[in-house]
């Protein structure tokens, strides 16, 4: 089956629309503004990724959207039901795979799947049939009578994903679905998610830290930082916005000096828009990476810095993220250069 482009914003009834959705936590050490007031729209059949570092507010958003956590402000309509006035209406129509485990170690794989399907109101026969389907498509064969406490981490994760999908919901929330999966299981899960969308028109909102995941799977990416959406678009468009090339220079032990040298000489380096460092790597954004490389290296050699490796690439979503937030996704500490005050 082929998939047609997701409906362009503004057409059709959105699967999910939020307005100023907000959540604060009151803790002993003061108020944590986890989600600042999010406006977002997801259309039927879209796969949308929330991309952001630890603590960005992704899980908090998902817990609000699945009725588990009361928002402290704002509204949302989900699959045609108002989040605040009709949480029960929302519940039957969404599937949720939480970031943390959701299985009882003393229950078997089959018991968990059948039970969840029954809680969603499926009759026993259909619950069993769905269980068999999911066991098959998420590679859980041979594990059905195993207690979940005896599964490997990746097997358990696949079970948790299956539990969230067991009632064929039109809208699915997946909170870091592939964390802990081996590469083969990951790509298998990606295929499964795509197949859901292609065959059933399922809408998916997922969070991830993995750029390749967002790139490979998502029609649209929302970049979240400090509880707000800081950028949004198709992965290809976002990468295009970064513009030019990314040059990475490895200078183990000497990277900070390399960075400051290049930053000082930035006016002599045409097309260079950004110089920054993360660990032993200096990262340079340039209009034409291939051409400027010689100049970059000359500055370094003149300054007595030894570079051990150079690499020029098209920007990845990782670069998009760095560009927007000034921080890398994995490492949430501010970068040395050009970190906007946070």
């Amino acid at each position: 089956m082929t998939y047609s482009e997701p409906q362009s914003p503004g057409t059709g009834i959105p699967m999910l629309a939020t307005e100023g959705l907000k959540r604060e936590f009151h803790t002993r050490n003061g108020t944590v503004k986890a989600v600042l007031g999010i406006d977002m729209t997801v259309h039927p059949g879209e796969i949308v990724g929330l991309l952001g570092p630890n603590g960005a507010g992704k899980t908090t958003m998902m817990r609000m959207l699945t009725t588990l956590l009361a928002p402290t402000g704002g509204q949302a309509r989900i699959v045609g039901h108002d989040l605040r006035s009709d949480p029960a209406g929302v519940r039957g129509r969404v599937g949720y795979v939480a970031q943390a485990s959701g299985v009882d170690p003393a229950c078997t794989v089959e018991e968990e799947l059948v039970h969840q399907a029954r809680l969603h109101g499926l009759p026993l026969r259909r619950a069993r049939a769905r269980t068999a389907d999911l066991v098959d498509s998420l590679d859980l064969e041979g594990l059905t009578s195993r207690r979940t406490g005896e599964l490997s981490g990746g097997q358990r994760r696949r079970l948790e994903v299956a539990i969230g999908l067991v009632h064929d919901p039109p809208l699915v929330f997946l909170d870091e679905p592939t964390t802990g999966l081996d590469p083969q299981s990951r790509s298998n899960l990606w295929n499964h998610v795509r197949r859901l969308r292609d065959t059933l028109g399922t809408t998916v909102l997922l969070t991830t830290h993995y750029m390749d995941e967002a790139d490979a799977l998502c029609d649209r990416v929302l970049i979240v930082d400090h509880g707000a959406i800081v950028s949004e678009g198709r992965p290809s468009d976002l990468k295009h916005e970064v513009g030019g090339d990314v040059v990475r220079i490895e200078a183990p032990g000497d990277a900070e000096r390399a960075r400051s040298l290049l930053a000082c000489h930035q006016d002599e380096l045409p097309g260079v828009s950004l110089v920054e460092r993360a660990d032993d790597t200096v990262r340079i954004l340039a209009r034409d990476g291939e051409r400027i490389m010689v100049d970059l290296l000359r500055v370094l050699v003149d300054g007595g810095v030894h570079a051990s490796g150079v690499n020029v690439s098209r920007p990845t979503l990782e670069d998009v993220f760095l560009d927007i937030t000034g921080r890398s996704l994995r490492d949430t500490a501010p970068l040395t250069a050009s970190a906007p005050g946070v």
């Binding site: 949720y96 959701g102 809680l119």
Partner: peptide, 9 residues
Amino acid sequence: GVLERMRVT
């Protein structure tokens, strides 16, 4: 997380 999983049904 089991209770949470039941509460979304």
